[in-house]
Deep mutational scan, measured.
Amino acid sequence: MTEYKLVVVGAGGVGKSALTIQLIQNHFVDEYDPTIEDSYRKQVVIDGETCLLDILDTAGQEEYSAMRDQYMRTGEGFLCVFAINNTKSFEDIHHYREQIKRVKDSEDVPMVLVGNKCDLPSRTVDTKQAQDLARSYGIPFIETSAKTRQGVDDAFYTLVREIRKHKEKMSKDGKKKKKKSKTKCVIM
């Protein structure tokens, strides 16, 4: 069974824990209790493949930012979460993405942009803004509501699919490099 290491990042209060708990335990946590770091595991079937999701729910508070490099190193894919009623959390996505790329030393890291709290009427981040940002990053965008469960499975499952595509691409690139290195030079 394939294991996928997913990391949920975003500013404090955007609903990272609520999304994760909704996926794992099928219930909505409405009281806000700032996370330092929590880890969850769940076995699911995605596109006919049974897999184990190892999900790291991270601290959004700035005082825990020193811990970010460590979990970013171990993560295979990242859910970059903002709240649709919090423009600052949307603007912060850029910083999370840049930090992930720096730590992973790669421009090509599996990510999904997630606009959470889409059940709320007080939207300050337009869907088109988020779609445009995701398009500019070359990553999928999904709106979710941890409260109603809308888009929750889709967000995590899409990230797994992005990781699969990335692994497939990397193995193809690896095979191309191996083929090239088999060419021999004969000096007579």
Rank of each mutant, 00 (worst) to 15 (best):
R161C: 04
K88F: 02
I93H: 02
K88L: 06
C118P: 02
T144N: 08
I36G: 10
F78T: 01
R149P: 14
I100S: 00
K88R: 06
T144K: 00
G75M: 08
E107L: 12
H166D: 04
K182D: 15
H95Y: 14
E49R: 06
K128V: 13
G48S: 05
V103S: 06
G75A: 15
R161M: 14
T183Q: 13
A66D: 12
D126K: 05
F78Y: 07
S122F: 07
E107N: 07
V152W: 10
K175W: 03
G48M: 02
F156N: 01
K178I: 08
I142P: 00
N26D: 10
T35Q: 07
F141A: 04
V7E: 04
K128A: 14
K172D: 13
V45D: 09
G10M: 00
K88C: 10
V112A: 01
Y96K: 03
R135L: 07
V29K: 11
N116A: 15
G12S: 07
M111C: 03
F82P: 00
P121T: 12
V45T: 09
K177A: 11
V14P: 05
E91M: 02
G15Y: 00
N85I: 09
P110R: 01
V152N: 06
D119K: 02
Q129M: 12
C80K: 01
D108F: 07
F28S: 11
R123K: 11
K167C: 03
T58I: 10
Q150F: 13
L56S: 14
R73H: 05
F90K: 05
C185V: 02
D173L: 04
R161A: 06
S39I: 06
K128W: 10
S89V: 04
R164W: 08
R149L: 12
K167P: 02
Y71F: 11
I139S: 05
L79K: 00
E62C: 09
K5V: 00
K101E: 04
K180V: 04
L19T: 11
G60Q: 03
V103K: 04
A130Y: 14
D30F: 06
D173G: 05
K184R: 10
Q131F: 04
L19I: 07
F78H: 00
V44N: 03
I100K: 00
A59F: 06
D108W: 05
F156Y: 03
R149S: 14
K165P: 01
I142F: 10
M67L: 10
C185R: 15
E49D: 08
L19R: 00
K178R: 07
Q61N: 08
L120D: 06
L79V: 09
I93K: 01
E168H: 08
D57N: 06
H27A: 11
F141K: 05
I142K: 07
V103L: 13
G15N: 00
H166S: 09
N26S: 09
Q150W: 10
L6P: 02
F82S: 12
K101T: 03
T74D: 15
R68F: 04
N86E: 09
D119H: 01
D154R: 09
F90Q: 03
I142N: 11
S122T: 10
I142M: 13
